[in-house]
Design a protein around this nucleic acid. Structure first.
Length: 456
RNA sequence: GCGGCCGUAGCUCAGCUGGUAGAGCCCUCGGUUGUGGUCCGAGUUGUCGUGGGUUCGAGUCCCAUCGGCCGCCCCA
């Protein structure tokens, strides 16, 4: 015998058993419905893109995390890879919009639920292959700030539908932060970026860390005013008023505060519950392409899990691919991370009997096999998901199978039942069993399973 | 890419100061005729991550290497 190869998957990848996969799928379904509800349309893009297309904006940090793709043939000839796996869905979106610009209706509202790849050190909630659920709105030349308010409303709806544990979408506005820094002498992106990063790390480093970073940058004088800005607490309205009262005479700052104020009003109008979405000046986001609103979502009781959903506003999405100016705003749910984290705290919703296999038809006598097949066909026509046990092993094995697969009902059809025109229906969870007239079976089970299915 | 911890059955792990391997779970079968998840009994499973070294002898010590987990960078 040849030696066995150890069955394994690369670290940072995830594989689920069918029941878990169903839960994950259900999560994605809820997300998709949430996107559709707000009038977003689906797209998909290839897992790999041309290398030069993908690596435009990245520069240093992201490039190190990119997987290159090369056919073995080309590899043998010593060619450098010309393809790379996408590491997010935003860059492919930019390419997509630039490519199909003339055919799209702007503002272009699309959602995209696909896997992305990052060459990172995996950890819990940090995979090398994971699923992102993105929505973005892309405008032509301009995009009303109202779109920025709609984004969190969409997410709140979805997370509520998912019965998530308490969560908060924190948002801020980089114009406010930049304007504030500008007004305090930190002028220009080169000076501001490192400070914004330091602010973004506040939850890990604390104020001490921020002070240290500022000291290292030779900006000790910013510690005091920035400290006050960043520790503003209260409802979004209260924080907004505090920002307005600072009355910094700085155009960018003023613009940012206006946007923040407008968001507060819009969020109320959209019916987003107070407290779900908070203005939090500690959110800055490291990614430098964000220019206005930024979002970051955390589970209230599990801050260590990191952000499960984040995004923001960017002034020019596709500058590398087209001369058109295409501002946008978007957000991404980290579905794989969210799923893993919910699972680790036991917060995944329980199996639903309306999904998966509803009924297992046990086969106890070879002579009745055709009857079992026919019964299965009939129940399926009634809208039920049915497995007919085709092996016809011992009954206890068949019951164990139903048990293991989480199938709630077992139908037993033997000659004892057949001669009386009934079948035995066993409810595995209730440990009950009843003889049901064969003619009533479909209706009986449908009522038991408790869902409305389309008329046959 | 940097730092720390760890690699023993499919899974989770035990194996004291070196003397050639164990538990639980899982799985299979049985506790007789068509009734599960409980209980009882029986059984299968390992080149102790890999390579080298020290030693009469190494899962146990040393070195290297690969892999995993955690933290950092970054991020969903």
């Amino acid at each position: 015998m040849p030696p066995l190869i150890a069955p394994r998957i690369p670290s940072g990848t995830l594989e689920l058993l069918p029941r878990e996969q169903r839960q994950f799928q259900r999560m994605l379904d809820v997300i998709r419905k949430g996107f559709e509800r707000f009038g977003f349309g689906p797209i998909e893009t290839p897992v790999f893109e041309m290398k030069d297309v993908l690596l435009t904006k990245s520069g240093g940090e992201t490039e190190k995390q990119v997987y290159f793709v090369q056919s073995t043939g080309a590899l043998q000839q010593g060619h450098a890879p010309e393809l790379a796996l996408r590491f997010d869905l935003t860059v492919p979106l930019a390419r997509y919009v630039a490519m199909h610009e003339r055919d799209l209706a702007f503002p272009f509202r699309r959602y995209q639920i696909q896997r992305v790849y990052r060459g990172e050190r995996p950890q819990l909630g940090r995979e090398r292959e994971f699923t992102q659920c993105d929505i973005d709105v892309i405008g032509k030349d301009a995009l009303d700030p109202l779109h920025d308010a709609e984004i969190p409303a969409i997410i709140v709806g979805i997370f509520t539908d998912l019965s998530l544990p308490p969560f908060t979408i924190h948002f801020s506005n980089r114009k406010v932060l930049r304007g504030f820094l500008e007004a305090h002498g930190a002028v220009g992106p080169e000076a501001q970026e490192p400070i914004l990063r330091a602010i973004d790390k506040l939850d890990k480093t604390g104020m001490e860390g921020l002070r240290e970073s500022l000291a290292a940058l030779g900006r000790t004088e910013l510690a005091e005013p920035l400290g006050r800005l960043v520790t503003l607490e209260g409802t979004s309205d209260e924080v907004t008023r505090a920002l307005q009262s600072l009355a910094l005479n700085q155009p960018l700052y003023t613009e940012g505060v206006q946007e923040v104020a407008a968001m507060g009003i819009a969020l109320k109008a959209l019916g987003v519950p107070e407290g779900r979405v908070r203005l939090d000046l500690r959110i800055a986001r490291g990614l430098d392409y964000y220019t206005g609103t930024v979002y970051e979502t955390f589970l209230d009781n599990h801050p260590g899990f990191g952000s499960i959903c984040s995004g923001g506003r960017y002034e020019d999405l596709a500058g590398y691919y087209t001369r058109s100016r295409l501002p946008g705003v978007g957000i991404s749910i980290g579905a794989t991370r969210l799923f893993e984290q919910l699972r680790s705290i036991g917060a995944l919703p329980p199996d639903s009997v309306t999904e998966g296999t509803h009924v297992l038809i046990a086969q106890v006598e070879p002579a009745l096999r055709p009857a079992c097949l026919a019964l299965g066909a009939e129940l399926r026509r009634a809208g039920l998901n049915v497995e007919t046990h085709l092996e016809g092993t011992k009954l206890d094995k068949q019951l164990r199978r139903a048990d293991k697969l989480g199938i709630p009902f077992v139908v037993i059809l033997g000659s004892a039942e057949a001669t009386r025109g009934v079948v035995a229906v066993k409810d595995l969870a209730q440990k009950t069993q009843a003889d049901i007239p064969a003619t009533d079976l479909a209706a009986y089970l449908r009522a038991k399973v408790g869902f409305l299915c389309p008329a046959p």
